[in-house]
């Protein structure tokens, strides 16, 4: 096995029995992919696509019906693999009666740290998530953003190589999202591998190196974010400074959109762009900008 692989998922399938007749429902269908070390992997899919189910398998909280999962080369059912893994559940509702430090202490002990090691690490992670002043506050008094941050703190407590975050941005305000993105950047710089799920595409575009798209329990695509963004038809926006009377000089196109001090138009294909630019220059019309429009990950779900 490649030592540069942090997460290796091979032919994983999962199904649940539900309803009165315990009818089997397939949730995940033969999923295989891997995540390289020290990358940020965005796992995207609409609600009900199977993201959380796969994450529960990834963290070893459930066993897959078939297939196998390895974390840093170790089978997830082994304790050694779990020691290399930090996990933040979706919209966590932690033990509200505990204080921030009490909760971290419990998670440290459950992660296999000694009491002394837990205390030392606790100070470090609380500083990282900016919760040092709130450590003696009960979790029921924490805001949503603070809960998310203490959740990240507990996932980092045992200094794992791989972090699995289930919808970490959900429910956060713009400032909270920005802080979390920055924190993810810091963790990547520290050499961690981050795997996070979301159904919000802009989050993925902002922080990920690699993207995996899941839909209906099947992996539709896995690859570098660049390859996703370069897919689809490339459109270009051309804007120019002109009066209304100047528009009659342009023969090839008519549907211009008025902007302050000029007009703009979105064109498909390089040939159309060249033709319009030629006419504008011929008529001494000032070109304001020529901007290619990036295709979005959103197109995968359209």
């Amino acid at each position: 096995m490649d030592s540069n692989i942090a997460i290796d998922i091979k032919n994983v399938s999962q199904s649940f029995k539900s309803g009165f007749w315990l009818k089997e429902k397939k949730i995940l269908k033969n999923i295989s992919f891997s995540v390289k070390k020290n990358t940020v992997f965005g796992f995207i899919g609409p609600n009900g696509a199977g993201k959380t189910t796969l994450i529960h398998l990834l963290v070893g909280a459930r066993k897959p019906k078939s297939g196998g999962i390895k974390i840093c080369g170790q089978n997830i059912i082994k304790d050694e693999a779990k020691k290399n893994l930090g996990y933040l559940p979706e919209q966590p509702d932690f033990y509200k009666h505990l204080t921030g430090s009490g909760f971290l202490y419990q998670m440290g002990i459950l992660s296999g740290l000694s009491s002394k090691q837990t205390q030392t690490r606790m100070d470090k992670v609380l500083k990282l998530v900016h919760l040092k002043d709130a450590k003696n506050l009960e979790l029921k008094k924490y805001s949503k953003g603070m809960l998310q941050r203490i959740g990240i703190a507990q996932s980092l407590l045992h200094d794992p190589e791989v972090l699995i975050l289930d919808e970490p941005m959900s429910g956060l305000d713009p400032i909270g999202r920005k802080e979390l993105r920055e924190m993810m950047g810091i963790l990547k710089q520290e050499g961690k591998t981050l795997f996070f799920s979301t159904h919000i595409i802009s989050d993925i575009e902002a922080v990920c190196d690699q993207v995996g798209v899941i839909y209906g329990g099947e992996m539709k695509n896995v690859g570098p974010i660049g390859s996703f963004l370069s897919q689809g038809s490339l459109e270009t926006e051309v804007a120019f400074a002109a009066e209304a009377r100047d528009l009659s000089k342009i023969k090839t196109y008519k549907n211009f959109i008025s902007i302050q001090g000029g007009y703009r138009i979105v064109l498909k294909g390089q040939k159309e762009v060249n033709s319009l630019l030629g006419e504008l220059l011929e008529n001494n019309i000032t070109v304001l900008w020529v901007t290619p429009i990036r295709s979005s990950l959103e197109s995968f779900f359209e």
Partner: peptide, 14 residues
């Protein structure tokens, strides 16, 4: 299960 802490604990070596 309601507050999903069971998954958090089982993700630890326990």
């Amino acid at each position: 299960f309601e507050r999903k802490t069971v998954y958090l604990i089982l993700s630890r070596p326990m």
